[in-house]
Design a protein around this nucleic acid. Structure first.
Lengths: 217, 217
DNA sequence: CACCAAATATTCCGCCCGGAATAATCGACG
DNA sequence: CGTCGATTATTCCGGGCGGAATATTTGGTG
């Protein structure tokens, strides 16, 4: 059950709708910033939910000569599945393999000055995004929409802030030469300065995962 | 070009290999924590890279009567594409629609006590993950592997830390009643206490995305 | 009032990815 | 020295998702 399925179920949990209305609603509420929503995928998703018995057709009407709209409603089973899926997604973290960590893990293939430039670019873009998030939050605050409805935005802002901070640290270390880059930047430069060979990663050897709870900021 | 394609190219940039050796190498280096790597996808990826002319077959040998191994090497074009793709991924942030924000955005569909429980669960799991990350970092430090080779782990730890902090804040506000949940928890409870209807999200109205750079911690 | 762009509402095709199947060989153990 | 399970190495098939196509209607503009 994909994120889009969750959103769709949640919408039907408000009141019965036809797929296109879901689409419009999601766009108009700017939920497309949180869930990836394509018309095609939406119809597929609804179909699958219907097969699973989580939603059911409540009628098909035709207005004028437009393509006929099929309206759906959520079922008992659907309500349960929705709650279940939300709970699962919150309760057990699942790593979803974003691509930035991969790229940053391979950044050593690029020369230092390039990476400095790229990190600067990313920071600039993130600053823009933050401005948009802030605007959204300000607007939400002005509407006095209760906070429980914009937890997602708040979360994104927090995580994004951490990324910016980390990038700033990286940038500083790259510029100061504090961070050894295998060039003549600083420190004991190894024998082969611009080698491509990557040493094999260490194996954490299944060590005891014990001291949780030690807050380190 | 997917993250796996980046990793594959990066491996071939070390030396020519057959797909299965890439697979082994990735596993043994624990890169499967950063990139999603399935045997099937790997072969598909290599094939596509070959079609694109980013890698080329360097030979096929057969040892004993095993299925014959096809060895690949990276091409000139491949080297360029690799650098280009890494740069792109670092330089321009792309939102990849993780599912947790969706779920947290729909958490208001669950009763407060359930959400409290779920957030506690997630925190516990994240603490375990942090322990593993710390172990990995400790091991890497012991091996004296230069920091530029584990930037990815460092990044993950930073972002994960922010998530934990945010969750702790949320948990506190849920427990204290500080956060209005539409139940009788606190504050001016609206007319329909356990309504399902979600108010439409505010529209940031394309506001001027201007003041970047205003550091607010 | 003619016409073109945008909105309405949905279907369809093709690619991509993951899980499972295949198939041979090596090592270990009795 | 037979055989069972793990390792080696790859292929294949099916489902899901995204982009584009389709077909009609509304609204705005000269």
């Amino acid at each position: 059950m994909t994120p889009l399925a969750i959103s769709a179920l949640a919408l039907l949990s408000e009141h019965p709708m036809h797929p296109y209305e879901m689409y419009q609603t999601l766009i108009q509420r700017h939920e497309d910033r949180i869930v990836k929503v394509r018309p095609g995928s939406l119809y597929h998703t609804i179909n699958k939910l219907a097969e699973l018995g989580l939603v059911r057709v409540t009628g098909t009407e035709r207005e004028g000569n437009r393509p006929e709209r099929t309206t759906y409603e959520i079922t008992e089973k659907g309500q349960l599945a929705l709650a279940e899926r939300i709970a699962e997604t919150i309760g057990e973290p699942v790593y979803e393999f974003p691509s930035f960590p991969v790229a940053i893990g391979e950044a050593h293939n690029l020369p230092r000055h390039t990476v400095i430039d790229l990190v600067r670019r990313r920071l600039k873009a993130l600053d823009l995004q933050r401005a948009e998030l802030d605007d959204a939050l300000a607007e939400l605050g002005r509407k006095e929409l209760p906070r429980r409805y914009w937890l997602d935005v708040s979360y994104l802002e927090a995580v994004q802030g951490a990324e910016r901070a980390w990038l700033q640290g990286l940038l500083a270390d790259l510029e100061s030469g504090e961070l050894d880059w295998g060039d003549g930047g600083s420190d004991p430069a190894p024998s082969a300065p611009t080698s491509n060979a990557q040493p094999s990663r260490a194996q954490p050897s299944r060590a005891q995962p014990s001291r949780a709870q030690t807050s380190h900021q």
